[in-house]
């Protein structure tokens, strides 16, 4: 059986009439943690949204294969049910539906089976304790009035409950305070196993301190300009993106 989980081939994406991704290739295997780094506006969030096929992002060329299936034009919910999860930088607020009910509903959709209520509650309680979450929030409306930190934890909680094959963590604009970093690393640690994979999208190297990652990709102006190991992240922390930006402009 192939070990390949996600494969992006020569992907071009447009958003709001602007060319954002200009030919991306990326392969993620089971058991791996990948990081895409890049300066603001390089196309990081676009990459995540393109994988989930957000209708606001138009794919001009290329394809995305997930777990052997072409999902380039698959509807978002179908992609999610096949096992792709994305944690949002700015999760939407949905009034009138509690976190618990939402999770139950989403989980039953993901598994296609009715939820075993007690087992589900235990599982939830366990995750919440690990993430140091306030149980009271579970009865509040989804993300409504949550602080940044609470939203972040809620996203990670959803990842754990839905247990996808590929988790994409969009951490682009976050201030990423110590607590948020802890939440994300803790979540990944709890989630990760040899059969799934994680793709972290960030411009901030701090988040990688407590993690062992397999690949770091540098995304500049819609191109992946370099791929390396964890050491590449350290290099960027020290030197920034300056030299890669220059490379891109020289090529163009």
């Amino acid at each position: 059986m192939s070990n390949k989980l996600l494969e992006i081939k020569n992907l071009f994406v447009k958003a709001e009439e602007k060319e954002i991704l200009k030919g991306i290739d990326l392969t993620i295997n089971k058991g791996e943690i990948h990081v895409i780094m890049g300066p603001n506006g390089s196309g990081k969030t676009t990459t995540a949204n393109a994988i989930l096929n957000n209708p606001e992002y138009i794919k001009e060329k290329g394809e995305i294969i997930f777990d052997g299936k072409n999902i380039t034009n698959t509807k978002t919910d179908e992609i999610a049910r096949q096992g792709v999860f994305m944690s949002f930088q700015l999760p939407e607020e949905i009034p009138g539906i509690s976190v618990t009910n939402f999770l139950k509903y989403a989980k039953s959709k993901a598994t296609g089976k009715p939820i075993k209520v007690f087992q589900f509650k235990d599982e939830l309680a366990k995750y919440m304790e690990e993430l140091n979450m306030n149980p009271k929030n579970m009865e509040r409306s989804l993300n409504v009035g949550f602080s940044g930190g609470e939203k972040k934890k809620n996203e990670i909680l959803q990842m754990l409950v839905l247990n996808p094959k590929l988790a994409i963590l969009d951490e682009t604009d976050s201030g990423l305070d110590v607590d948020a970093i802890r939440t994300v690393s803790k979540g990944i640690e709890m989630f990760k196993n040899k059969d799934n994979a994680v793709l972290i999208i960030t411009h901030n190297t701090k988040i990688l301190k407590n993690l062992t990652v397999d690949y770091v990709h540098v995304l500049v102006d819609g191109h992946i300009v370099k791929t390396g190991g964890q050491e590449l992240a350290s290099e960027i922390e020290e030197e920034g993106y300056g030299k890669y930006k220059k490379e891109v402009s020289n090529n163009e």
């Binding site: 978002t76 999610a80 999860f85 949002f88 949905i94 989403a106 959709k109 959803q158």
Partner: peptide, 11 residues
Amino acid sequence: AIFYLMSRGLS
């Protein structure tokens, strides 16, 4: 909001 919920597997 629709996209957010669809990304969680809801039709």
